[in-house]
């Protein structure tokens, strides 16, 4: 069963707008989340320690950096790319954009698994905004995989 309708003229599948809107909104959530973490890092003061939830040891840990660049900054670029690719596809209907999105979402998902592993087993502390990012990137991965297999199915049909 196909989720997407096949347009009669060129056999290319049009991804429904509601799907695109969903990806954009989730990407936007991830984007704001990353901006927040980055802003906290650069303009915010030290994050206080709370009685039961402890301190934000995750955001302050050395693992929050990759080659000296804060992960939250990389997150900003990741989610920004997702949004721009989807808007580009919405405008031009060029499938390459959605294929790039699908591939990108795999990278995002694998990165999230690694970050969750770091939080659970290495730092042994969790950070709410990091978990939120893992949730958004996992959702994007599921959407990306769905789109990817729809695109492949379409190729076989041609």
């Amino acid at each position: 069963m196909k989720i997407f309708e096949t347009s009669s003229t060129n056999q290319s599948q049009i991804i429904p707008n509601i799907f695109l809107l969903g990806i954009t909104l989730i990407g936007f959530t991830g984007f704001l989340d990353s901006v927040y973490l980055t802003a906290k890092r650069f303009v915010g003061g030290p994050i206080p320690c709370f009685v039961f939830t402890g301190c934000d040891t995750v955001a302050q840990s050395p693992y929050a950096l990759l080659f000296g660049v804060p992960l939250s900054v990389i997150g900003i670029f990741y989610y920004l790319s997702v949004i721009l690719l989807v808007v580009f596809y919405f405008e031009t209907k060029q499938q390459i954009a959605m294929k790039m999105f699908s591939l990108l979402s795999v990278v995002g998902f694998l990165a999230s698994i690694y970050f969750i592993y770091l939080q659970a087993f290495v730092i042994k502390a969790f950070c709410f905004y990091c978990i939120l990012s893992a949730v958004t990137s996992t959702t994007l991965f599921i959407l990306g995989a769905t789109i990817w297999f729809q695109c492949l199915q379409n190729k076989e049909a041609e």
Partner: peptide, 25 residues
């Protein structure tokens, strides 16, 4: 218009978050 709105929303939202973090205290 589409790209203009997209860019405006992105920049606006990012600026809002940074402002909130900076002035939250």
């Amino acid at each position: 218009i589409l790209w203009g709105i997209t860019v405006l929303i992105i920049i606006g939202a990012a600026a809002g978050v940074v402002w909130a973090v900076k002035n939250g205290g």
